[in-house]
Structures are given as C-alpha cells and as structure tokens.
C-alpha cells in the first residue's frame, strides 16, 4: 500500500483509536456498526450487539478525547426508543439523529440529547415503506436517503419525512441491487451506494439516475468483497469499507484506486486503563507479536484479522467528521480507527 501512496498525492495517515470491548452498559462499545457526529463534536456510536445480548444495545456518546458522556436507546426491544437490529445513523442540519433498524423496519429520530422525537415505521414495499432499512445519509438540504435492503432500492425523503422518490430493483445490472447496505451523499448531492452482494459501489444523481459503478469481485486493488460502507469527501474521494476483505479502500473521484488500508490500531485511552490494572496481561502482551505469520489454513482476510489485532476486523462503516477525519467502525474489535489526509 505504501508504494501506491508514495506515487500519489493522496495519502491517509493513521491518527488514533477509540474504543474498548465491554459486556455491560457504560464505557466501551459492543459490536459497533456506525458513528455520527453532533454539531458540538460529540461522537455517537451505534452498539449493534445481536439478539442474544440485546440488553447491551444502545447509542453511546463519547468525546474525541475519550471521555464517556452517556448513552440512550438502551435495552433492545419494541419501544420507540429501543432497537432490535440497528444498522446506521446520520445527523441532519438541525442536529437530529436518524437511526435505521432493519428488523423493526423503522427509522427513529432522536434529538442530540437522545430524546425520542419521531419514527417512520411503515413496513412493506410501497412508497415510503421499508423492508430492512440499512444505510442512511442526509444531504445539505436535509433530504434523507435510505437503503431499503430487502426491497432492493434506495428511497428518498424530504426534510419533513415526506416520500420523494425511489430507485432500484433486485439484480446485478446498473441500478439493480443485491442486499445493499451503506450509503453516502457528496456535497453536490450525488449518491453512492455500497451494493454489498454485487461487490461494487454504484453512483447516482440525487434523483436516482445511474452515473457509474465502481469495482468488481476480488481481493485486488479496486476490487471488493461485500462492501458495507461508503463515504465521500469534499474533493470527491470515495472511501469504501471493504467488509469482506477486512480493509478500507480509497478511490479517486473517477473511481480510480488510490490507497488500501489494512488497519494499524493502537491502544486507546480506555485500553491503557484496562492494561494498567491487569499487569500480567500487560506484561505478556509486551512480549507478543500481534501481527504474526500464520499457517495456510488461516489465510483468508477474515482469519488473518481474527489473529492480527491491529488490522481491521468487521469494518462495517466509514464516516467523515466535520474536519474530514475518517472513522472506521469495526464491529468485531469494538473500536474506531481514525485516519486523516496528509
């Protein structure tokens, strides 16, 4: 990856890691799926968990300096402020956070203090109805784009929640989707969809006209295996959470390959807190090689990441904060790796 970076003007550099595994409420994350940033710079982290540990589902809030600030939407369940399988989040211009839930077939809106405001929860396949809402993105005019995964489409709503339009159908051609997941919208309102099981990113105009498709199945540069998340910066660079390949790739505005990241997490502040009171782990960790050479039966990206702690593992989402820093959310390592452009 460094060879590519050296010949291009585009380079992402590692900044830091936030996170810690937890099996309780409070500080730490549990299978995080997405992040979002409030106007005052707080980081909202969506703890997805799964059905066996739904009591830990919640949105946790922390600062960039790793102060744990609180949580809401706790407990897993049918109530308005609870989740069943929450997938993605986005803030609108009024600092309200929208959260999708693929099992409740619901989009729930909270204020930035975590108070329930509203929900869109019509399930079905008609206009404005959902079957497994997944990725969500909100543009500068507060239009809301939602990936409606089992209906194989994107739906667009205006800032009042009124249905505007939709596009997509099942399949593998242009404007067709196979279990799509993440979505992003750029400054000019163009929409990017992580077409998960078609191993590509599709780009559309804000009303759904197909513009381009990037990528194909594979492990090479510019190829994807089950991409789950996408983000676009103000220069048009496209960041892709290449989930099945356990990596992040950056494409230029024209879709050309720019850089591949495999991950280089370091210890978060919370991780230091833990190791400082568990010294035998700290000491044996100090003599360990956490990027080992592995026997051939473990040579898939998923196995390699399972054995290599600094690497991305389950990189579900990529998101940019207000300063353009890239946050990679890793569901299997319960942390956020943060990168920025050099």
């Amino acid at each position: 990856m460094s060879t590519h970076a050296a010949t291009k003007t585009f380079t992402l550099e590692y900044v830091k890691t936030i996170g810690l595994t937890t099996n309780q409420n409070g500080r730490g994350f549990v299978n995080p799926y997405d992040v979002a940033f409030s106007k005052d710079g707080r980081i909202f982290v969506l703890n997805h968990c799964d059905s066996a540990r739904r009591n830990l589902m919640r949105v946790g809030i922390c600062s960039y300096d790793e102060e744990y600030l609180g949580e809401f939407g706790k407990g897993g369940g049918p109530a308005d402020d609870q989740f069943s399988s929450p997938v993605a989040m986005a803030f609108d211009s009024r600092d309200r956070i929208y959260i999708t839930d693929e099992l409740h077939h619901r989009v729930t809106i909270f204020d930035s203090a975590g108070n329930f405001i509203n929900k869109w929860d019509a399930s079905g396949s008609g206009d404005g109805e959902f079957n497994g809402p997944a990725g969500i993105a909100i543009d500068g005019q507060d239009n809301v784009y939602i990936v409606d995964q089992h209906n194989s489409r994107v739906q667009k709503f205006d800032s009042n929640g009124s249905y505007v339009t939709q596009w997509g159908e099942a399949g593998s051609g242009p404007s067709q989707f196979n279990l799509p997941w993440g979505i992003a919208v750029d400054d000019s309102g163009q929409v990017y969809v992580a077409d998960w099981r078609n191993d590509r990113i599709q780009k559309f105009t804000s009303d759904g006209k197909h513009l381009a498709s990037f990528g194909e199945s594979g492990e090479g540069d510019g190829q994807f295996y089950r991409p789950s998340g996408v983000a676009v910066d103000s220069d048009g660079y496209i960041y892709v959470a290449d989930w099945g390949n356990e990596r992040v790739q950056v494409l230029g505005p024209d879709g050309s390959f720019q850089q591949m990241l495999r991950g280089e997490a370091t210890l978060s502040k919370w991780a230091h807190d833990y190791l400082n009171v568990n010294l035998e782990e700290k000491e044996t960790r100090a003599i360990s090689n956490l990027t080992p050479d592995l026997p051939p039966q473990y040579n898939t990206p998923h196995h390699i990441s399972s054995q290599t702690e600094p690497y991305f593992w389950g990189p579900v989402s990529v998101r940019l904060d207000g300063e353009g820093k890239l946050y990679v959310t890793e569901s299997n390592r319960h942390r956020l790796q943060i990168y920025q452009r050099a």
Partner: peptide, 9 residues
C-alpha cells in the same frame, strides 16, 4: 480486553 479475542495458531 482491550479489543476482544485474538484467535490462536
């Protein structure tokens, strides 16, 4: 801790 299990080889 800190970042969940590390598999073995």
């Amino acid at each position: 801790w800190p970042y969940s299990r590390i598999a073995w080889h």
